[in-house]
Design a protein around this nucleic acid. Structure first.
Lengths: 224, 224
DNA sequence: GTTTAATTGATTGTCGACAATTTAAGGTGG
DNA sequence: CCACCTTAAATTGTCGACAATCAATTAAAC
């Protein structure tokens, strides 16, 4: 069933939508380089749409914190800095910690069962030694908890505003690394706390989980 | 000197800026009613600008979570619901708690001194019995700590994304109420923790402070 | 030779008109 | 009388052209 869990089916209805999604993808995956300038006319010809469309797309990208715009000057893709990554993780720790707390409070039994099922399939892959996690599994897990919080603001901020940036860092700095089995155990404990409706513990464990991930990323940065 | 602390001097350089600021003000203050439809042509004549300007302004308002837009249908000012207010406070508790933690870590001695000075002027007003707080003082205090976190994402999310909504709730639901002296003491303790560079305590106290405020607002909602 | 001023070129901001879609009204058939 | 289809009005989406602003190059003055 829900194989590639694309949760909020962002169906592009308008041309500006399509262009926005395409541009976002190209930026996140580094097709459009970090720090590069976004010329409206240039992109207009490249994506075969009018400048108005490009402008709207760029405006939305600015809302996602993927580009920065200056009046009468133009827009640039954000630069990827170590400080920026740290700041991102601090926000994640805060918001996802609260998400876990609220998930422990608001997720239905069914949703918790599904979450356990997801974890089991992950465990099977870990046991059989398949190359696990790299992206998809981890993202799925976090998305479910975020959605489980049932807090619209929280969901919007994280999914629309933070996660694309996180992915941009991961992709462009080549962060796919290990940290697999330990992360799996951490996920298990978090789900356990949610099952027990232990809000306090769920938040604490999620914050720790993200802190560990942050430190893992920091050491990776130092190496390069 | 810094009387009406308008921190991030949002100077309107372009016409879209001006219209955005004006429209945001009108929405927050209820001149444009919550839940009402935003007709592009109508606003275009009302504010004497082209539709393109209005569209850009509405897009930005959507980024602030002040309006919701549906493709090919239009934009509406968000509806104010008790649940929405709760969700807002949950996010604030999370983000401002982290802000206090980071402020304890990153604020300069000078900034902490200024914060203490601000608190003293507030105390004078409390002592002399002047009508205090209603808005300005409280906002000033929170803004300083948010900015003191030195975390760009945190700052943007709170100041550009949350606080206008909070103010919209306060203005339109007539939340100016009491809760003055107790809030002042809470502020004092938070600043004390920041002075001591006690990150843990600063976060905890800020989260409590916001929780108290939330409960205060909830009881007010029940009354009406 | 260095700094300042002016001009040119290119980019962004703004506008009005046209196309596509939705909503409402009206009519037709069951 | 209700349901469905058709049609018309209004609203949003998209476009190309023009105006305003900024960056760079060149010219001028000290």
């Amino acid at each position: 069933m829900l194989a590639t869990m694309t949760f909020f089916d962002e169906t592009a209805v308008t041309a500006a939508d399509k262009t926005f999604f395409q541009l976002r993808k190209d930026i996140v995956e580094g097709v459009v380089l970090a720090g590069s300038k976004l010329s409206e006319t240039e992109l207009s010809t490249k994506y075969s749409v009018s400048r108005a469309i490009i402008r709207e797309a760029i405006n939305r990208l600015e809302s996602c914190n993927l580009v920065e715009r200056k009046a009468n000057v133009g827009a640039r893709v954000v630069a990827l800095t170590p400080e920026g990554l740290i700041e991102l993780y601090q926000v994640r720790e805060s918001l996802e910690g609260m998400a876990a707390r609220l998930a422990a409070k608001n997720m239905t039994s069914q949703e918790i069962d599904d979450l356990n099922a997801l974890l089991n399939t992950h465990f099977q892959k870990v046991k059989t030694g398949e190359s696990y996690y790299q992206e998809a599994g981890d993202v799925d897990f976090h998305y479910r908890i975020i959605l489980g919080s049932k807090n619209r603001h929280l969901i919007t901020m994280l999914i629309d505003g933070i996660y694309h940036l996180v992915r941009m860092y991961r992709v462009q700095l080549g962060m796919s690394g290990p940290r697999i089995t330990t992360a799996f155990d951490e996920h298990r404990h978090i789900v356990q706390a949610i099952s027990n409706r232990d809000e306090e513990l769920a938040e604490m464990l999620m914050r720790r989980h993200i802190m560990y991930s942050q430190r893992n990323v920091e050491t990776k940065l130092e190496q390069s």
